[in-house]
Amino acid sequence: MFRRAFWFTTGAAAGVWATTKVNRKLRKLQPDSLAAQAVDKAVESGHRLRQFALDVRTGMADREEQLHDALGLGETGDVRELPAPRSRTVLEPQYRHTRTTGQARLTGPTGNEDH
């Protein structure tokens, strides 16, 4: 008799638990609940984006301050002179004779013909 009562109680408890879980899941899948969840996610994403933008601004200000210090651009107005820009030479293409045709062809940096 005790075993039957135990298993009956266990079955009833499992049924109540399963019914509660199913009802909760169904309520979450109703259109009103889905809309509320979407709004919550959008608001949360907005807060995260705003925090990211604030972090980027803070990082930019810190980096700008570091660059000002490195370049000697202080608030006193004293400016160090920057080094002169380096001149850049234009690389001319290299032409070589090929043995088979005798024509001049453009070759790449490895000497292989570019097609």
Rank of each mutant, 00 (worst) to 15 (best):
V39Y: 11
A36P: 01
Q30P: 02
Q30S: 15
R63W: 00
G77D: 09
T89V: 13
F2I: 09
L67P: 01
G59Y: 01
T10A: 04
D62N: 06
Q51M: 08
H115F: 15
V16T: 04
F52S: 07
L26V: 12
H47C: 04
Q37V: 06
A35R: 06
S45E: 10
G74D: 11
S45L: 12
W17Y: 12
R63Y: 00
V22P: 01
A5D: 07
R99E: 13
E92C: 03
M1S: 15
H97N: 15
P85E: 11
S33G: 09
V43N: 06
S45K: 07
V39C: 10
A104P: 07
V56W: 01
G15S: 06
Q30A: 14
T76S: 15
G59E: 02
W7H: 06
R50N: 09
T58W: 00
G59D: 04
A42S: 09
P93C: 02
S33Y: 02
P31D: 10
R96Y: 14
N23H: 15
T20N: 09
G72M: 05
D62F: 01
T110W: 00
G108T: 05
H115A: 15
G77L: 06
V56M: 02
Q30L: 12
G111S: 06
R27Y: 11
Q51G: 07
Q37C: 05
E113D: 12
T98S: 13
R3L: 10
K28I: 13
A61Q: 03
H115S: 15
E44C: 08
T58Y: 04
P31A: 14
P85C: 10
A12T: 07
L49I: 10
G74I: 09
R86N: 15
N112H: 12
D69M: 11
T101M: 06
L91H: 10
V43D: 04
G74R: 12
A42W: 06
A18E: 01
E44V: 06
N112C: 10
Q103C: 14
F52P: 00
A14D: 01
A14F: 03
R63H: 00
T10K: 01
L34R: 10
G15Q: 07
A70R: 11
A104I: 13
M60F: 13
R88F: 13
V16E: 02
